[in-house]
């Protein structure tokens, strides 16, 4: 697989995480005020790793920076600083053939299959394109056979290859996007709100398919979503983002059963409960107002302007606190947020 890695490097990599992101910052130029240029702090100092064959869920609301992280990993946007390593190789510094090879190994599935498929290309041509780009499989017949295999893998009949996107339903289109992502035999797939625009019954089909493919092919996923229940269902580890920063990270089971950050708690309490009786009687943490502008984020904890537990100390830089072995939170008020009375509202 890793033909571009040196022998020693390859040996080393098998034991480490597949993806290692450290201190990632992405800033976009904002409006100029006089001689001063302001910056949109889209992603600030984000680090995480993903083990081979596992799924990391990146959850947050609009403006949290979760999609920008996915775009930075595929170099659709240029990070301001930080490192991204895939199998130990520096993704951001790679050039030429090495960069192409790394790009082959990281695939992406976007939210809207209507917008991300070329309307003038048949499904077969769309799925074959990565094979052409990466010069995989010589010969037309071989590529056609591979495209048919891929369609079968995502649950589409072979005749779909001759169809155009407008002839397909939303769920079928998203299956085509997944087949295209699988074409070049990637290690990591970034799923950016890949089920968000689908109907509920079809969302379940796609989530089941993604998990089956992971089991069969040993794929590694970065599952980017605003949907807490979907993230819980899909992920082994979770990172909760707000305004470009990590608020809380941990194993899915631990983070969902013992949310330690007031923002995570507010997010969970905002998800409507499926049981109408519980829904009517429970207390909700309602956040006031809107998130602050990423052009001018608050000092210290960026959530403090809406946080029900905010205190004076929250304006100071926030250290990482361990809740337990694999569960960290960026909050100085965790003692309050983890009080039994508060937690009772969230834990099911």
């Amino acid at each position: 697989m890793s033909s571009t890695a040196g022998p020693g490097e390859a040996l080393d990599n098998r034991t480490g995480p597949l993806l290692d992101v450290r201190n990632l910052c992405v800033r976009f130029p904002g409006p100029r005020e006089g001689r001063h240029r302001s910056w949109v702090h889209a992603v600030e100092d984000v680090s995480f790793t993903i083990e081979r064959g596992r799924t990391l869920g990146l959850v947050g609301e609009s403006g949290s920076g979760k999609s920008t992280i996915g775009n930075a990993l595929t170099r659709l946007v240029q990070p301001t600083s930080g490192t991204v390593r895939l199998d130990g190789q520096d993704v951001l510094a790679a050039r030429g053939a090495r960069a192409r090879e790394l790009r082959r190994r990281i695939a992406m599935v976007f939210q809207d299959p209507y917008a991300s498929l070329d309307p003038r290309r048949t499904v077969g041509a769309t799925v074959r394109e990565p094979l052409d780009v990466h010069r995989m499989l010589s010969g037309r017949a071989g590529r056609k056979r591979r495209a048919a295999e891929l369609l079968d893998l995502v649950g589409l009949v072979p005749e779909t290859a001759a169809r155009y996107p407008h002839e397909l339903s939303g769920g079928q289109r998203q299956r085509v996007s997944i087949a295209r992502a699988l074409a070049a035999d990637p290690d990591l797939i970034i799923l950016d709100e890949s089920t968000a625009s689908l109907d509920v019954s079809v969302q379940a089909q796609i989530m089941n398919l993604l998990r089956e493919l992971q089991d069969e092919l040993g794929l590694t996923y970065l599952f980017v979503s605003h949907d807490l229940a979907a993230v819980e269902h899909m992920s082994h580890h979770v990172v909760v983002m707000y305004l470009g920063r990590r608020m809380e990270t941990g194993t899915t089971d631990h983070l969902y059963s013992r949310p330690a950050h007031p923002y995570t708690q507010a997010l969970m309490s905002a998800v409507p409960d499926t049981d109408p009786a519980t829904e009517r009687n429970r207390e909700r943490i309602l956040l006031g107002g809107d998130p602050p502008s990423p052009l001018d984020p608050p000092s210290g904890c960026v959530f403090r302007t809406r946080c029900p537990l905010a205190a004076g100390e929250c304006a100071e830089p926030v250290p990482k606190t361990a809740v337990s072995g694999d569960h960290d939170v960026w909050c100085v008020r965790t003692e309050e947020s983890l009080s039994p009375e508060r937690l009772r509202r969230f834990v099911h």
């Binding site: 339903s169 769920g171 079928q172 109907d199 509920v200 019954s201 079809v202 969302q203 379940a204 089909q205 989530m207 089941n208 998990r211 807490l228 229940a229 979907a230 819980e232 269902h233 899915t252 089971d253 969902y256 059963s257 969970m268 998800v271 409960d273 499926t274 834990v347 099911h348």
Partner: peptide, 24 residues
């Protein structure tokens, strides 16, 4: 029943969601 089973529910993890096959 299919709709109610298709959504993942917070705090109740399952291995598979009961998807409704096909399209409307």
């Amino acid at each position: 029943r299919g709709l109610l089973g298709a959504r993942p529910v917070l705090g109740k993890r399952r291995d598979r969601l009961t998807a409704i096959p096909g399209t409307p």
